[in-house]
Amino acid sequence: MIRFWRNLLLFFAVLAAVKGLVLLLSAGYYERVIHDTRAKTLLLDRQAGRINTVFIGSSRTFTSIDPARFDSLTGHRTCSFNFGVSSFFIPHTFRTAEVLMARRDLALHYLGVELSLPRFDTSIDPFRWEAWEQPRFYLPYLFNAPPDTAGSHSRRAEQYLNTYLFTLLSPALRLRMAVAAHTDDAARRQQFEADLTGSPDGYLPDNHGLDAGTGLGRDSAELPAYHSRSLLVYSRSGNEAVNPEYREEIDRLIGLAQRHRVRLFFYLPNRMTPEEARALIPLFRSIDAQHRLHLPHDPRFDALFLPRFSMDRGHVNYGGSQIYTGLMAEAFVKQMVP
């Protein structure tokens, strides 16, 4: 059996060596574009000193908050930037918020952070520095999960382990990026970079980069369910369990914001999976009113879930983003601006 174990270890060593070689050979190619959070940071850096409001979140933020419209609706009291990135969830979002708040070169007054659940069933780019920090948040989070969600969390744990291990080893994503970054087709290259960063203010006005398949299709049948889940935030709260680890992270971030004199607020994603609704709505309610952006419930909110304002079941389209940004700006002026 010793021989078997020895050869098995040797097998993994050879596998890692070949992977390492491929990484070394391809590293120079993807450096420029692979770090989608870095690409976004670079975009922000170019406007440092001007931007005073940043929204950090997943693709739902990326596609639904239009900074230009937001600023016009706040009477240009804000100069905002969309730091939405595909598959960008807690703890990465919180860590980014922490970093941005600590930066002295940014004239940051307002910082909005989308609440999300840690997700590990989508590809994690191992070269996002945050990927290496995941266990620090995730393991205590899992440990503190309320009993009713323990089952789904254990499945998540398995997905996490899988995705994390495989992605750390796999150069596939990087090779794909390398090919895309090195293409001679300038238009395609620009398109590719725009997929990562969106327009100069960080907003992604259409669906490029987010494989929307052939449109809504069967997804449209699921929109009412997304709608009714989002409406739960307007119903009366009961005795709802919140994950203490998550709550602690929120408090820590609020503390940091106070120290850095940044007005921090959290908001819910505009499309929530059942699991997100179960976990995030109670969490959102547990945050004091001055640190959460509560959207008004009116027909505009309901319209967000109509097929004509949807890119797919999880994202609004351009029309939806204009409505959503309007609602956000209205709530922002009412709740955040003195």
């Binding site: 097998f11 050879v14 596998l15 070949v18 992977k19 069933d121 989508t122 997905q159 899988n162 995705t163 495989f166 080893l169 796999s170 150069p171 596939a172 090779l175």
Partner: peptide, 21 residues
């Protein structure tokens, strides 16, 4: 035999899709 094991494993890691498990 070694080339098979390493080669196929590399293909799995590089071209694999892990979403539809």
């Amino acid at each position: 035999r070694w080339a098979y094991a390493v080669g196929v494993a590399e293909l799995i890691l590089t071209l694999g899709r892990y979403d539809n498990v």
